[in-house]
């Protein structure tokens, strides 16, 4: 039944059209999240006052579900692509920021001292020591954020816009078509897993291997 629905979704072209929209949204939202999240995380890791002011707020925002952002996004951006992208972005960014920040803040002072005695300081110290040392933690952040951004995307598509995979779920629910709902859920999960496996896991593994963290 589910396979049948899945097949139907594929041949009717509904999946193809929806996925195209959804993937465009998620790639824009997710890229923004990665860029802004890492920048904000670095700033917080380096500036104590910013960290003290912002990290509590971020944690508060994180505890708010993706759905809670939709009224804000729709009122702010209108019922359009940007509202969806904003929700994707905000759901993914916070975990990246928090991970980047802790990665930067917990760089071993031994490594920093080692660089200092070689006469390395300032921007070079940051670029060559602090940032690379934070890389494993940043990668964990962007990998988690990938899953979070899908959650944001589906929520936003159900609540806001008339297109995308989330919308298929909504329509299938309207038609009381359980097998189509399940088939679509499987589709969403498997895309997320496939991308995670072919991109993020590979990056993480290569870093882990290089650092000697893997057994």
């Amino acid at each position: 039944m589910i396979a049948e629905s899945f097949w139907h979704g594929c041949v009717s072209g509904e999946y193809a059209v929806s996925l195209k929209t959804s993937l465009l949204r998620i790639s824009v939202g997710y890229s923004l999240a990665v860029a802004l999240g890492i920048l904000l995380g670095i700033a917080m890791g380096l500036l104590k006052w910013l960290d003290e002011g912002v990290s509590g707020i971020l944690l508060g925002l994180q505890s708010m579900g993706h759905a809670a952002w939709t009224p804000f996004a729709v009122l702010f951006f209108g019922e359009n692509e940007w509202a969806v992208i904003f929700i994707v972005q905000i759901s993914a960014m916070i975990v990246i920021t928090l991970n980047t920040e802790s990665g930067i803040k917990f760089v071993s002072p031994q490594l920093i001292n080692q660089a200092r005695i070689s006469g390395i300081k300032g921007l070079t110290l940051f670029r060559e020591v602090v940032l690379p040392a934070a890389v494993p933690s940043i990668i964990t952040g962007i990998r988690l954020a990938w899953a979070f951004s899908w959650r944001g995307l589906v929520t936003a598509e159900i609540l806001v816009s008339g297109l995308g995979v989330g919308h298929i779920l909504m329509r299938a629910k309207g038609q009381k078509d359980m097998s189509y709902v399940l088939a679509t859920m499987l589709l969403i999960a498997s895309i997320s897993i496939v991308v995670d496996n072919i991109i993020f896991k590979k990056i993480e593994n290569s870093v882990r291997k290089r650092w000697g963290i893997t057994k």
């Binding site: 031994q110 001292n113 080692q114 070689s118 390395i120 070079t124 060559e128």
Partner: peptide, 27 residues
Amino acid sequence: RVIIFQEPTLFPWMTVLENAIFSLKAK
């Protein structure tokens, strides 16, 4: 004045050679 610490603080993302070259970076 170069100090050698109790723990051999090597940068884990650099090879042995890169570690040794890195200390010469400021020269």
